[in-house]
Structure formats: structure tokens, C-alpha cells
């Protein structure tokens, strides 16, 4: 088989996984009647590529010392992370129906002590990237070849600690760290431009010293290419991929609507959302 048909098969496989992620995200938020769909859906394509292609992980051995790490710095979108972990078999798929319920491993924000596959607990914005930097420094110092991937929100980048962490990643030449920015232009109260303009985030990360690229965060091909182009590259700088995305991507009435940041669909909305996602097949 030719390389290009292999590549095409991979793209359609990952596209299908992204669809399964979106269905799972909506199902768990609908069951819980609580959670954050908008930013989960905007990150679904990136997460599909990471969890079904890029990350060196072993669901049977979540504590494997040489595994790649993933840090969900914007912890509120844990439905997309839980969907990845469920579909990769870290826990039984049915567990998704316990999201936000008492005693569940699927807490309202990720809890590393309860949920296998969660590398660090998050939920307070601005902090996850620092922990990713710590993991990447440990990897370098220990001579291990794992990498650390971190997903940051565009609104989240208003936190000063994000930039403290980037400085540290640049100082320690962490080319084993890959920062994804989910640049969906919306945050909790309104658009980023209205709440607090972030400016051109790619330029900012570049200026801080990251090896930076910009992609369409809903093009599986572009995400795969971006990751292909940095894998194994020793540039002595952290990588930053600013992914332009649409908050709520895949569900027409959620797309670009601030209110869907942290709201659960009712039965009718859920049915329509699933139909749209499945219909796109």
C-alpha cells in the first residue's frame, strides 16, 4: 500500500475517533446535566490525534515511567479527556455516566488520585503548564525520552503564571514539551476580545522563545502534520502550536455561542446535537 493511502486511512480513522469523542462528551454532560461542552468540543480534534496517534502511553499501565505525559491545563474541559481515556480503555466506557457524581473517578475537574490516566489534577486555570514544565525538566534530568503535552485555553493565557511557566520552559530548553493553545476566542463571560484581549497569541509565544506554529485546530491533517514536523526535533526550545478553533465545534447551535461554555443540553438539544455529529459521517 502506498504511503499516501496509509496516511488517508489514518486521517479517516482519527476523524472517526474525533466523532466518537464528541458523542461521548455530549453524552456524559447530558447525563450529568452539568459540565463544559464548548471548550471540550473545540479541543476534540487535537485530543483525538494525541490520544489515538501521538502519545506514547499504555492504558494497562497508567503509571509507566517512560510514558508521555498529558496536562489538561484548562481542566474544566475534562469531558474531552475522560472521553479519550474511556475510549482508550483506561476504565470501562460506562463510567462516563458517573461524571460529576458522588464517588466517581470522573470528578468535575480532573483528579489524578482518582482517575487513571490523569497525570496531574487541574481546574484552577493558569497552573497546569507549570506542572508540565516540572515533568519535562524531570524527563531531561533523568535522561528519559518521554515528552509532555499540555493544552492551554486562550482565555487561560490571561493568567500571568502561564508566562512564568513559558519563561522557565525556554530557559531550560524543553524541546520535550509541546504546548497546544485552544484558540477558540471565547471564554466564560464573553469573547476574549471583550473580556481581555489576548492579542496574537502565536506572536507572544514566539516572542517568549517558543518554536511556534499556527494551525487549523479542526483539520486532522494539519494537526498530524504539525506533530510530524516537531517529533524528534532537537531545537532546545519548547514547542507551541496555536490551534485556531471554534468553541462548540460540531454542534451548530453551540458553535461560537458563549453560553455553551458551561451548560448542559436538554433532551431535545442532546438529540439534535447527536444527530448532527452522527450525520456528519
Amino acid at each position: 500500500m502506498s504511503d499516501s493511502s496509509n496516511e488517508n486511512r489514518k486521517i479517516s480513522f482519527l476523524t472517526e475517533k474525533a466523532r466518537e469523542l464528541r458523542t461521548t462528551i455530549l453524552t456524559m454532560i447530558h447525563t450529568a446535566q452539568s459540565g463544559h461542552p464548548g471548550g471540550s468540543l473545540s479541543a476534540a480534534d487535537i485530543m483525538a490525534v494525541l490520544y489515538f496517534d501521538e502519545l506514547k502511553i499504555d492504558p494497562a499501565n497508567p503509571g509507566w515511567e517512560d510514558r508521555d505525559r498529558f496536562v489538561l491545563s484548562k481542566g474544566h474541559v475534562c469531558p474531552v479527556l475522560y472521553s479519550c481515556l474511556a475510549l482508550r480503555g483506561y476504565f470501562p466506557y460506562e463510567t462516563i455516566h458517573t461524571l460529576r457524581k458522588e464517588g466517581s473517578i470522573l470528578q468535575g475537574h480532573p483528579d489524578m488520585k482518582r482517575c487513571p490516566g490523569v497525570d496531574i489534577s487541574t481546574g484552577s486555570l493558569g497552573q497546569g503548564l507549570s506542572t508540565a514544565v516540572g515533568m519535562a525538566i524531570a524527563g531531561k534530568r533523568d535522561g528519559r525520552d518521554y515528552r509532555v503535552f499540555c493544552l492551554v485555553g486562550d482565555g487561560e493565557s490571561q493568567e500571568g503564571q502561564i508566562w512564568e511557566a513559558v519563561q522557565t520552559a525556554v530557559k531550560y530548553q524543553l524541546d520535550n514539551l509541546v504546548i497546544f493553545v485552544d484558540n477558540n476566542r471565547l471564554q466564560n463571560d464573553n469573547t476574549c476580545d471583550i473580556v481581555m484581549p489576548t492579542g496574537d497569541l502565536a506572536k507572544k509565544f514566539e516572542a517568549f522563545g517558543c518554536e511556534t506554529s499556527r494551525i487549523n485546530g479542526h483539520s486532522i491533517t494539519e494537526i498530524v502534520k504539525a506533530l510530524d514536523s516537531i517529533r524528534g526535533k532537537k531545537v532546545q526550545k519548547p514547542f507551541c502550536i496555536v490551534a485556531n478553533t471554534v468553541k462548540g465545534q460540531g454542534v451548530s447551535f453551540m458553535e461560537n455561542v458563549v453560553a455553551w461554555h458551561g451548560m448542559a443540553p436538554n433532551d431535545a438539544q442532546f438529540a439534535q446535537a447527536l444527530a448532527e455529529i452522527e450525520g456528519g459521517r
Partner: peptide, 9 residues
């Protein structure tokens, strides 16, 4: 935060 990440390793 960096210390927390180090501690996980």
C-alpha cells in the same frame, strides 16, 4: 507548579 510536576516524576 514546577515542583508539583517534578514530584509526579
Amino acid at each position: 507548579g514546577v515542583a508539583a510536576g517534578l514530584a509526579t516524576c
